[in-house]
Design a binder for these strands. Structure first.
Length: 492
RNA sequence: GCCGCGUUCGUCUAGGGGUCUAGGACGCCGGCCUUUCACGCCGGUAACACGGGUUCAAAUCCCGUACGCGGUACCA
């Protein structure tokens, strides 16, 4: 079995594109098939130089390796459509000679005029098809001599598929079952543009056939194009591949998850953004796999190899699915918690560096141990847990109001003195010292614990106070406690 | 407008004629644990779009309506 992911290099790889790639990958690996990457760069006007590198990087980051494609080669190279122009020309000619396609010389303005003139309330946008083409300038309406003359004169023209009405095209979709279209609903699709490049429809059909693709797994937006493709396979005497159209990913607000739409909801849309925001690739992949598919039992955590094992295209749903950032974050937390401290350290390092924080391995391992259950992203260690690396510069005002009572300064100062006298500065010792002090002063331990936490971290939440103190160390604790006493003093 | 696809808790979904007083997960709300915050554990909230059929029996099959999404380019 052979499948392909065929992105167009018009921008950063979209999250929906990654899911399409993922399903193709899973299908190929599940069945011991081949996964082909093909770059569909036939639209020169929308071409973006950096896009292909981004696609490659994004796939690699996600762990989706391919068997044939750019940078890798393969038996069906080249894998850039822009380098395969002669191939498409050959088949366009074959279609022309078989009378299944024709030349059309109409300018965009002429087509626009036709649409305007023939528009009715029932049919606001007439197609270029069997009923209108007889009124247009093409090799079906012009004398053969005239067509030859125009072609020889280099007159701009396109090649259109000749679709005969009155028939019905039915194909089987692995996800949707039988789908039927009437040929009268299909326009005479442009196959070769006036710049000589093929459109998606021609290039796609030709390449899928030549590259021996057995299963076309792509987004649902292609469903209405499929009958055109089927017609072309037939006209060329080829067997169409199996089709599977994936449900679309929708914005939580409804509608396509477009760039604009997603930005408004605070949802990253390109794979690169997910990477930059610190999502774990395993989490994104797991989440994406479950957007439209499930294994049929109640397991939820699947890494790539487990997904391969469990995947089946029949279990892919058919209705659009809404993107849910909360669920993705949950997946991210799950993967963070499954990592060993050393794995997590590797993830955290780059963020620490970016924040200008330097620290040794042993200390970082202890911090990670304390914070692991409390973070959603690896980078939180460098931001939310910054107080492990630097003295707090501010104290949360609400926390101060709530926890720094009139006796706080005295208690904290007294505790600092006790700590200074301590020989061993471990979790048990600092706790014992605090409880003893509380007893002597006749106050609840919380009366000291809370202000101490505030003094040490600047915030009212975090890991177990005593474990935190042991990690921070005696010197740091004393310094921070005394500074807080000084800065916060006695509230009136 | 026309064509196509879809419709189970707010979201992702299980289910495919009786086992459904509809299960799980995220979220949310409570509780336990903990003198913090999380984790964890326990509990709760919440859905078969609507209307007709078929059947002894429908969330499940059929038809219609509504709604959503996609397509309707010399973009993919």
């Amino acid at each position: 079995m052979r499948v392909r992911f065929a992105p167009s290099p018009t921008g950063l790889l979209h999250i929906g594109g990654l899911r399409t790639a993922l399903y193709n990958y899973l299908f190929a690996r599940k069945h011991g098939g081949r996964f082909v990457l093909r770059i569909e760069d036939t639209d020169r006007s929308r071409f973006v130089e950096e896009a292909e590198a981004d696609i490659l990087e994004s796939l690699a980051w996600a762990g989706l390796d391919y068997d044939e494609g750019p940078g890798k080669g393969g038996p069906h190279a080249p894998y850039h459509q822009s380098e395969r122009k002669e191939v498409y020309d050959r088949y366009a000619r074959a279609l022309l000679e078989a009378g299944r396609a024709y030349y059309a010389f109409d300018t965009p303005e002429e087509i626009e005029r036709m649409r305007k003139e023939r528009a009715t309330p029932e049919n606001p946008s007439p197609k270029y098809d069997a009923v209108t083409r007889v009124h247009m300038t093409n090799s079906l309406t012009l004398p053969a001599e005239e067509v030859r003359r125009r072609l020889a004169g280099g007159e701009p023209h396109v090649v259109r598929l000749k679709v005969d009405p009155g028939e019905t095209v039915t194909f089987h979709d692995l996800i949707r079952g039988e789908v039927t279209f009437a040929t009268g609903e299909i326009d005479d699709q442009v196959l070769v543009k006036s710049d000589g490049m093929p459109t998606y429809h021609l290039a796609n059909v030709v390449d899928d056939h030549l590259m021996r693709i057995t299963h076309v797994i792509r987004g649902e937006e292609w469903l209405p194009s499929t009958p055109k493709h089927v017609l072309m396979y037939r006209a060329l005497g080829w067997e169409p591949p199996e089709m599977a159209h994936l449900p679309l990913i929708l914005s939580p607000a409804g509608g396509k998850l477009s760039k604009r739409n997603a930005d408004k909801m605070g949802i990253p849309v390109s794979v690169r953004q997910y990477r930059e925001e610190g999502y774990e690739p395993e989490a994104l992949i797991n989440f994406l796999a479950f957007l439209g598919w499930n294994p049929g039992d109640e397991r939820e955590i699947f890494r790539l190899p487990e997904l391969v094992e469990a995947f089946s295209i029949e279990r892919v749903g058919s209705s659009g699915v809404q993107f849910n950032l909360d669920k993705l974050r949950w997946y991210n937390e799950q993967y963070l918690r499954m990592m060993t401290p050393d794995e997590l350290i590797v993830k955290v390092r780059p963020y620490l560096e970016k924040e200008g924080i330097t620290t040794d391995e042993a200390y970082l391992r202890r911090v990670v141990g304390l914070m692991r259950e409390r973070i959603s992203f690896a980078k939180d260690l460098a931001t939310a847990a910054r107080y492990f690396f630097e003295d707090p510069t501010t104290y949360d005002p609400k926390g101060v109001k709530k926890r720094w009572k009139a006796d706080a300064a005295d208690l904290v100062a007294a505790y600092a003195d006790r700590l200074e006298a301590l020989e061993r500065f471990d979790e048990a010792s600092v706790e014992a010292a605090l409880r003893a002090l509380a007893e002597e002063k006749g106050v609840g331990a919380g009366r000291i614990i809370h202000p101490v936490r505030l003094a040490l971290s600047g915030v009212t939440f975090g890991p177990s106070l005593f474990a935190m103190m042991e990690t921070l160390g005696k010197e740091t604790c004393l310094r921070r406690l005394r500074r807080a006493v000084e800065v916060l003093g006695k509230p009136e």
